[in-house]
Design a protein around this nucleic acid. Structure first.
Lengths: 146, 146
DNA sequence: CTTGAACCTCTAGTTGCTATAGACATTAGG
DNA sequence: CCTAATGTCTATAGCAACTAGAGGTTCAAG
């Protein structure tokens, strides 16, 4: 049995994050020592590694919750698992596309800067007047997560 | 003078967002009508358009605050403006690189899925065992903003 | 003059943690 | 065995950048 600190070190997850995962029900309520400290089995360590790995791949916690639920039922079809992974792939592709548009626009801005004063700064100019934008980074304001 | 609703419609920003920008000091405290409703001049409309455009390009609000401050001093060198824009470009490039690694890994996962049961699902398998990962999406857990 | 849309303030929620405070538990060294 | 240094406990608040809701006022049209 591992203490929370050892578990965190083993899985590469910070201690408060583990407690947070327990709080939101991603990890089961931990067993406790006589002194009320959390103790973890190997099974929980595996579960946490799974969570961390999925987080590294950008899956939101809700999706991870679903994936964990599905992985506990090995006999079911993996269609749902596949759907979650595909959704994540599509989300990632969307973010890449959007960031590439931003990158192009930022490059244009920065390259246009001749090092003069603010009054003739290309960067300010473009930000002031959207019409100077080549790319249509359009109406989609929201900060896309990840 | 525009009401908040008209301003929002004109700039493509939601009404609560405008109030939020006022609250955090990105927009000046609005003038008020006799009935205590906010009224906006053309100058504020321009400022809001600037903010929105910078947000579309992924600049964080803090950077936008700086950019606005700089654009109010047209005689200064634009070096700082340039630095902010370059920092944003580098941040965007970093996010693209990371997302492309994720995309590659997700594609591998999804392509490996043969449509069987969860017990032989490639997606679950890869998530369970990081060693099966081709790409090193490594230690960088944090959700990179935007 | 009444209705309904738009406005007001204030609070709380979102995501995925991270940080802080103040108190108990454990462990290593002397 | 005692002490000091970690490690752990709970609970709360904070981050970005908004969004949503409650409950109340004001405005413009018919």
């Amino acid at each position: 049995m591992l203490t929370i600190g050892k578990l965190g070190a083993a899985a590469g997850v910070k201690v408060p994050t583990i407690r947070y995962y327990e709080q939101i029900g991603l990890l089961p309520d931990a067993e406790r020592s006589t002194g009320n400290q959390r103790l973890y089995s190997r099974a929980v360590q595996d579960r946490l590694a799974f969570i961390r790995h999925a987080r590294e791949l950008g899956f939101p916690l809700d999706a991870i919750r679903d994936l964990l639920g599905l992985s506990d039922r090995p006999d079911q079809s993996c269609a749902e698992v596949d759907a979650i992974a595909r959704a994540q792939l599509i989300a990632v592709e969307g973010r890449i596309a959007r960031l590439q548009a931003l990158k192009a626009e930022l490059e244009r801005m920065v390259q246009g800067c001749t090092g003069g004063t603010v009054s003739d700064c290309r960067v300010i100019e473009v930000l002031t007047d959207h019409g100077l934008c080549a790319v249509d980074h359009g109406k989609d304001l929201p900060g896309f997560p990840e």
